[in-house]
Design a protein around this nucleic acid. Structure first.
Lengths: 138, 138
DNA sequence: AAAATCAATGCAATGGAAGTGCAATTACTG
DNA sequence: CAGTAATTGCACTTCCATTGCATTGATTTT
């Protein structure tokens, strides 16, 4: 079990107060968050800083970007089983039409998608929309 | 074989010169187009008109919206086999990282996606990225 | 056919999100 | 401790989506 400081250092990311806070925020949220979500959580910090922090995390494969079809890019921590640095990894995300939350279903692998002759598949983005477990249970 | 006029009327859309032109443009393009694409094709027309025309087509299930991950929404004509009015229809689109074009692969059905207990799947958006047939053939 | 009604179009403006340049600050290195 | 490099904050810019309102055009009613 390594600390957040150790994790950042192992990824060659300079440890700053801001980065620790944002990382902590991401671990607490179990869902994918937008930049605005982070912005609302840290009203003191500048939006650009948050933007660039997340971009840094993304470059270093600490978070991955999610396009769930809402038009707003979301970010989520890469967990064990999330090999998003590998181009061919299949990202499966679930977007709830009710609560508008998006979760990563990293443990749910999806089958290989066949494409017609001549097409070369490099990456797959799969977003399932519907009602999530929290909303369907009510 | 029905004319465009008849098609629009059957969908309760008033026939105007603009709408006929835009529909014709969409049939000629075999790929999904952005609003800007349409704008460039009709420089005389106002952007708002084009926007609202496409939105009207979308409401009446003449075109469907595609989110291919470029951040810009694209539109494509619904063809036979494209039952996008049906919530459970699987939209499979291919986005070429080389020429930046997006095509509908309506004839390529994808397998049922399993989601964890408690989750209810209503809709699936699947975008495959890679190199399209035109670009890979070069 | 003219008047009245309703939809479609064009113009102007707004809003939201992504991204950039630069100066100031903060953290590392020798 | 001085110098260097990275980080942060502020001010802008850009791009696309969207809306309000006035005007034009088409359809219906009398």
């Amino acid at each position: 079990m390594q600390t957040i400081e150790e994790l950042l250092e192992s990824k060659n990311i300079r440890v700053t107060a801001m980065r620790l806070l944002i990382y902590k925020f991401l671990t607490e949220k179990q869902i994918a968050v937008t930049l605005s979500d982070i912005e609302n959580a840290f009203e003191k910090a500048d939006r650009t800083t948050l933007y660039r922090t997340v971009k840094t995390f993304e470059e270093k494969d600490i978070v991955h970007q999610i396009d769930d079809g809402t038009g707003i890019t979301k970010y989520a921590l890469c967990e064990k089983g999330c090999n998003c640095e590998i181009e061919t990894d299949l990202h499966l995300h679930f977007h709830c039409n009710n609560c508008n939350e998006t979760v990563c279903l990293t443990e749910h692998k999806i089958p290989q998608i066949k494409v017609p002759d001549g097409f070369v598949s490099e990456n797959v983005n799969l977003v399932v929309k519907g009602i999530c477990d929290k909303c369907s249970g009510q």
